[in-house]
Design a protein around this nucleic acid. Structure first.
Lengths: 125, 125
DNA sequence: AATCATGTTCAGGATTTCCGAACATAGCAC
DNA sequence: GTGCTATGTTCGGAAATCCTGAACATGATT
């Protein structure tokens, strides 16, 4: 996958990840102002080895919307993504976020857990 | 001002302020994901007595847009507004925010100062 | 009563967000 | 190899949001 085209397909279309210095507070905040994205963040934080494929999240939105959410998290610098075969693996950029905006990620993780809890308790009565 | 109408004009149209318990993380984050609103927050934090009228901010956006930004901050619970004569006075809801989302407001204040500094250094060369 | 100062609301265009449908690629069965 | 499946992405259009100038509303001041 990854939609490489033509001759350059071996190297083309690398995933763009902003450098630590280029993280923008307003963009990170916007990325973390959505329940689905908070849930993703909390889920990643709970993972011991820290890498998860997109499918494993069981989110209550469509596939294309998921794709958009992961893209938003990546472009704002909240997560790092890399391709392995047909899967795209996600991990939190904890070091970078803690360095630039100390405390913010921890807050988001707590709130993301709340979102997930809300889903499990309110969706199966 | 305040657009009270008809008979009930003495008591009508109170400014709505969410209670501390009803603050939503996603909405507060969205409110704090805009440079203009961050600047407002930082400016309020720097004020000793903590109350400022909307005009005193000298923001680089139109009056109607300012109005919208203050409304967004109020409805999300970041600021409290009260009317005094023809002016609308704003103050930070620091206690409520610190109680619910400890550390978040301090981060926003720092970043809001950066925004303001960016304006002063980049707009008058 | 006229005017000013301070903010709000409205209508419109420009920008996001969501979804289903179609598409692209890797890996596997045969 | 040829299909088939699993995993994600992109596209197009509907619904919701953001920005602005213009018109409005009301308290204060002359």
């Amino acid at each position: 996958m990854r939609y490489h085209r033509g001759v350059a397909s071996r190297t083309a279309t690398e995933l763009v990840h902003p450098d630590r210095k280029e993280l923008r507070f307003t963009e990170v905040m916007a990325a973390l102002s959505d329940p689905v994205r908070l849930a993703i963040v909390a889920r990643l934080a709970a993972e011991p080895d820290g890498e998860l494929a997109c499918t494993t999240f069981a989110l209550p939105v469509s596939k294309s919307t998921q794709s958009g959410h992961f893209k938003a998290l990546r472009e704002s610098g909240v997560i790092h993504q890399r391709d392995e075969g047909t899967r795209r693996l996600n991990r939190l950029r904890r070091d970078d976020l803690d360095a630039r905006f100390p405390g913010l990620l921890d807050l988001a993780i707590v709130q993301g857990r709340n979102v997930i809890d809300g889903w499990s308790t309110r969706k199966r009565p």
